[in-house]
């Protein structure tokens, strides 16, 4: 990669200059009002994420990482600020349009695997396609391809509780990918896995980013795993404290 990186004067907002940013958030605020006291969880967050970027978010517990990720993934709304996704003003969208945009472009992976307990592996993979109204024959093809690709064909009729943690997370990743989203948000995707399993998942995400150009935004507590990203955003008390460009990725 040979892009020039520029540091914006504003609290560490960074964009890859020549690219149209996939996501842009400007002056984002998020607070909870309890007993007439506003507790700010995110303050003045401005951030651009380029199409094809691999971004890591780090920070201590309670810093607001998950909150930011959920807002970026359109599961939650900021109280203030702008959110542009492919130049579309998401902050002005109603829930229906947000859901549509989310459904089209976003995949999610959680620390706690979060598969639907009542569905088999096959059905878990199929569900996002159902919501996307993918036709039955095409759906079958996609699910089978994905099962193949993740080497879990043998497990397709098992329920989540019959799988190990690593296998469950594998299914969760597969499920996030199956709709070919533009961007995947991963909230501590390896947090509950042993190091070998964790590395496997990280390798897979990196490969996806490299070979298919899928944008990846991950939250992690692990310095090593954070360095899979092109940049690392450090959050502290809801603010972007600093942006680290991962040097060895530039070569």
């Amino acid at each position: 990669m040979s892009e020039t990186m520029t540091m914006d004067s504003k609290a560490g907002a960074v964009g890859l200059k020549h690219d149209q940013p996939l996501i842009e958030v400007i002056d984002l605020f998020k607070y909870y009002a309890n007993n007439f006291v506003k507790t700010y969880v995110l303050q003045d967050v401005t951030l651009g994420i380029a199409d094809g970027e691999f971004l890591s978010i780090m920070g201590p517990s309670g810093a607001g990482k998950s909150t930011l990720l959920h807002i970026l993934g359109m599961l939650d709304e900021a109280n203030q600020g702008q959110y542009l996704f492919l130049n579309e003003p998401v902050h002005r969208f109603n829930e229906k349009r947000r859901t549509a945009l989310h459904r089209e472009h976003v995949g999610f992976i959680f620390q706690a695997y979060h598969l639907i307990d009542d569905l088999t592996v096959y059905e878990n993979l199929e569900t996002p396609l159902l919501y996307k109204k993918v036709k039955s024959s095409e759906r079958k093809g996609l699910v089978n391809d994905t099962l193949d690709r993740f080497n879990i064909v043998a497990k397709k009729d098992l329920f989540p509780h019959q799988l190990s943690g690593g296998q469950q997370q594998l299914v969760a990743v597969a499920r996030a990918l199956i709709t070919r989203p533009k961007v995947i948000f991963a909230d501590e995707p390896t947090g509950n896995l042993n190091s070998k399993q964790g590395t496997e998942i990280m390798e897979m995400l990196a490969q996806l980013n490299r070979e298919e150009g899928t944008t990846i935004v991950q939250v992690t507590h692990d310095e090593v795993k954070a360095r899979y990203g092109h940049r690392i955003i450090h959050l502290l008390d809801g603010r972007i404290e600093r942006v680290e460009v991962v040097g060895d990725k530039l070569g």
Partner: peptide, 13 residues
């Protein structure tokens, strides 16, 4: 939890 997940997977209300 199921509801949350389904929404994450793109389910509309």
């Amino acid at each position: 939890k199921e509801v949350g997940l389904r929404k994450v997977m793109g389910a509309a209300g």
